[in-house]
Design a protein around this nucleic acid. Structure first.
Lengths: 362, 362
DNA sequence: GTCCTAGATTTGATCGATCAAATTACATAC
DNA sequence: GTATGTAATTTGATCGATCAAATCTAGGAC
């Protein structure tokens, strides 16, 4: 790490027989420099292996080329990997665009806002990517008020075009799941979801409802609301399948109005449903079809069909959405309404069909 | 983001009627400042909500208080979550120590070394955390040669005390697994592992071997080597259980010398073993016990016992190991042999017992 | 009262880039 | 040949901190 003599703008300028500013221009505004000079300077830059020092640049420009991202504790191990893949794709995309991802943690939203303030004033962090937005999010309000570029992975359920966001069309996902089951021959298709009120949950529920409606299939009594998790999913399945835990004939089950297909709001719930089926001696994929949501690794492992979020595409889109916000000079152009530059993008998920939804209903 | 007048050392100094340097000392070397002055300055700092500008500091000190971490693409979804938890713990610990985690990606080791060079010269990155080390790792050699502080999660299989590292004692984990099975009454305990040559794999294998030896149990013919993955694990189990795929009586299986316990080098392999058991009509946990390694979410989901790596502790230890390297001034103290400050730490894993290894052998 | 020393504080230079404004070079027009 | 305007390049100031050295203060020894 001991540099005998580190290459700087000045050292390059000296050897190339031009001024510092010209070297700077070669890198930041090449069109201003005559081609011949440019070549000469570039050659010296190469020879000296010169790399601009970010801190010096930042001191002047107040830009760090850093994007902040809060990493949350892994609550539910099952859903954790989505973040993992997202992080990698985001880092790669940002890197290609000349930005880096810096992580931070915060105990709650208020702490996160304090972290923004800190990161902006001490590190000149250029932008933020938020991952789990919710109703009346104080974070987005703060960022908007302070004119900080940001994009959210997830819609701001409510005020849709207040800021840039990227999201996955959950309704399209559950609807595709229904379509797939209908195509297989299923007629009684249940939905195991979360309590009303969460934007994400309601969205996925709506896709199921619309899917059934499109085929004039019944929805009544086929809709259970539970908290996320494997055990809740199991109880939901138990409720849908009725009291008797002993396996009966397909005919009897059909007569009792039991569902043959289960569309779930998460893989955790779907895993619970699978457990309950197994507990009753019903074979997933044969006696009943189950489809989860998020395509977590566990689902691939046990052959659970699942709605796959295009995580890498989301990450790419996030960086893309940030570009116009980052490029615009915040000072020279007052830009009264930051909403102007806000972009929204809704990506369709893809259904990964596995053994848990391979066969027609019994 | 438009600051009417941002607080700086100078603005604080002015209002506190002291010089810039004194304000700087209050923050960086409080003992040099008389208590009365210190109080006065701190009050002004508070009133102006002053926060030191990192870029300015960095320009002078050449220290960024940033730790770099390469994030690799998620190859195997099953093992991905370990990284996820590690990242969070690392970010939190580093943050408490006044450091931030910056992510980057690289296609291969050579590219990673190039990234180091870039990150050091442009961002003054203070240290790196490496996650998957291997035999003759060019990255650690480069970092050592360039006197860059770093710590690895994983032993440098071979030259053990060349640099700081933190690792989990895999042998202790598989040994604990064996002990657990022996305590349940198992006598024929197989090991499903990877081909010889990988440090991690051999280590886990050794724990199994030693565990059996401690109880004078046979190991012969109970050791299969396959690549990682569910399907290879399944084939390994098939091999260990013999040709016949039809379920036989416990007595017949015992007579045939079939194992009743399976210790695996990864959860993926364990999942394969589970699949093969199920395929043969054998109930995991009842007809045979299975134990995986890494405690990925999938294992909790399906009740697979698994050796749990204390990821959060590893992260805390990584930051702890870096401290002495970071605190030492690289220039003033030539520190001929960086090995001096290297610390090693081997953490014991914990066995998470679940239904797949709950019962005594049939 | 003077001298000395350690402690407290200040001064001026510096890190390496960009900005804004000034200067020079060069082609075209008259 | 001079004027004129644009393109190319240079100059000096500046961002906000720390470093190294200088200066000031206060207390004790003699």
């Amino acid at each position: 790490m001991s540099d005998p003599e580190r290459a700087t703008l000045a050292s390059v300028a000296r050897q190339a027989r031009v001024s510092r500013q010209t070297v700077s221009n070669v890198l930041n505004a090449p069109e201003r420099v005559r081609p011949a000079t440019r070549e000469r300077v570039l050659a010296v830059i190469d020879r000296q292996d010169y790399r601009p020092h970010q801190a010096a640049r930042q001191l002047r420009t107040r830009r760090s080329r850093v994007i902040g991202l809060r990493i949350e504790p892994v609550r539910d191990g099952v859903n954790g990997v989505v973040l993992d893949r997202f992080l990698h794709a985001l880092t790669a995309t940002a890197q290609d665009a000349g930005y880096r991802i810096m992580l931070f943690t915060a105990a709650d939203d208020a702490a996160e806002v304090r972290a923004y303030d800190e990161l902006i004033s001490t590190l000149d962090t250029d932008a933020f990517v938020l991952t789990s937005t919710h109703h009346g999010d104080e974070r987005t309000a703060w960022l908007r008020d302070h004119r900080v570029p940001f994009v959210t992975f997830g819609r701001p359920w409510g005020a849709e075009n207040q800021h840039s966001w990227v999201d996955v069309d959950g309704a399209a996902g559950t609807r595709a799941a229904v379509e797939h089951l209908v195509a297989l021959g299923h007629r009684r298709i249940a939905f195991v979801g979360w309590p009303r009120g969460s934007g994400v949950g309601d969205d996925r529920w709506a896709g199921w409802r619309d899917g059934l409606a499109a085929h004039s299939l019944p929805a009544r009594g086929l809709d259970v609301q539970v908290l996320d998790g494997i055990e809740p999913g199991r109880r939901a399945a138990a409720q849908l399948l009725g009291g008797s835990t002993t396996a009966t004939t397909p005919g009897a089950r059909r007569a009792a109005g039991q569902p043959t297909g289960f569309v779930c709001a998460s893989d955790s719930l779907a895993l619970g449903v699978l457990a309950e089926l197994q507990h009753r001696g019903l074979r997933p994929g044969t006696d009943a079809a189950v489809i989860g949501f998020d395509d977590t690794p566990a689902s691939a492992v046990i052959g659970l069909s699942s709605v796959t979020q295009p995580i890498a595409e989301v990450a790419v889109a996030c960086v893309l959405q940030l570009r116009p916000l980052l490029d615009s000079d915040p000072d020279s152009n007052p830009d009264r309404d930051p909403t102007d530059r806000a972009r929204q993008l809704l990506l369709p998920p893809v259904l990964a069909v596995r053994t848990s939804s391979a066969a027609p209903p019994p």
